[in-house]
Design a protein around this nucleic acid. Structure first.
Lengths: 214, 214
DNA sequence: ATTTATCTGTGAAAAATTTCACAGATACGA
DNA sequence: TCGTATCTGTGAAATTTTTCACAGATAAAT
């Protein structure tokens, strides 16, 4: 038998799938769905139901073996165990087109409200209308530290990406979502980095297609 | 010994790493770098050098055992074997803030030029200034088929995402990059889907942080 | 009340992926 | 010319991750 007070760490693939599941459950909850079976989730997530059950089982806690999972309860458990309800605050670096889009869209998703946004151009800072407090990029470290910001979103041009990352890390940020087309690494620092690139995704798609089928 | 005309399919993790490597090599080439060792790539990609060598070895072909890899040669090999030089054409569905950002930025990255863009609002189509041909969303299937577009980028609001995906697939698209906050699945169709979500990435970061350290 | 169909939870088996270890090769320096 | 340090390429081992198979349980139907 295994203790529920397991190793509080899950395999990375499991962790990423559960994070996606969390969002999906939120959507099901909005749609007034009470219960879901692992088989239904299989269709919704493109993850085999075996794997879903295993993932949830690895979490340590789940509902009794009823007909499927209780959507709200499972979501709450996930939020707790994954630390998704911790209410981390986030900042944005770069107010170009993409940054602007995120700045305005962030209002829609209340999960991660922006605590600050930065840009290297004072002019652009003055022209941008938003409720989010704006600062010059040179202030990143200070503001991140003072507001205890946990993660930063980088949407600056390629040549400025590394400096942005370094400033975020210097300020104590623990996570970075990097949308600039350069790869940011921080293997030696205790920082989680996610590099997102449209071109990169298209490359992966092209490669899969090239390997024929699916 | 193994034939170079191996199984033309690689393990998914390898394929994704090699796709990232391709972009990185492009950047190194721009910076006039002639050679890279697997150890240097380790730092640049946050992938262990063992794994990098293995990946390249799995490709089937690589340079002679010299001091590191020839940047240009390796990049060309990758492009060929991964089908990244195939010149696929791509379209964009949704001209909101994010779509607009991609529309204008796409010019910067010449790798995947947009062959068309779509929106559900005629008004917005008329207001948007760009060299990319614009169409109403109802035309997706037709245009995708006629222009032999390989992949679509979805940046529409959540409620419209599924319809956009279905139209792309109906038109014969083989790949989808979905930036809308709903998960699109096409497990039963021969289509590669990449769901990208800022909130999702922040969730993953939060989860990793919660599991303490790194 | 009993049968049947359908679920979850989970140890164990299978498969996939990464890491290791070392042979073979090259460049550089003495 | 020879030795040394540093690379790559790759089979084999180790590890991780997924899949399987089935016990235990519940709800619905007869």
């Amino acid at each position: 038998m295994k203790f529920f007070t397991d190793k509080c760490c899950l395999p990375p693939p499991t962790l990423e799938r559960l994070a996606r599941l969390y969002t999906l459950l939120g959507r099901l909850e909005e749609a007034q769905t009470r219960r879901v079976t692992s088989r239904a989730l299989e269709g919704l997530l493109s993850v085999p139901c075996h794997t879903i059950r295993k993932d949830i089982s690895l979490l340590g806690a789940a509902a009794k073996a009823e007909r499927g999972y209780d959507v709200a309860a499972l979501r709450q458990t996930l939020g707790l165990r994954l630390g998704l309800s911790a209410g981390y605050s986030v900042c944005l670096v770069g107010l170009g087109r993409l940054g602007g889009a995120i700045l305005n869209q962030a209002g829609a998703d209340r999960r991660y409200p922006l605590a600050a946004a930065f840009d290297a151009s004072m002019n652009r800072i003055e022209l941008t209308r938003t409720d989010v407090p704006l600062y010059h990029s040179t202030q990143i470290s200070r503001v991140v530290r003072e507001k205890a910001i946990t993660a930063g979103i980088i949407t600056v041009p390629p040549h400025a990406a590394w400096e942005a990352a370094e400033r975020l890390i210097a300020g104590g940020a623990r996570g970075i979502v990097n949308f600039s087309p350069v790869i940011i690494t921080a293997a030696d620092k205790p920082v989680v980095v996610r590099n997102i690139s449209l071109t990169g995704e298209l490359d992966v798609i092209a490669a899969y297609i090239h390997m024929q089928g699916v």
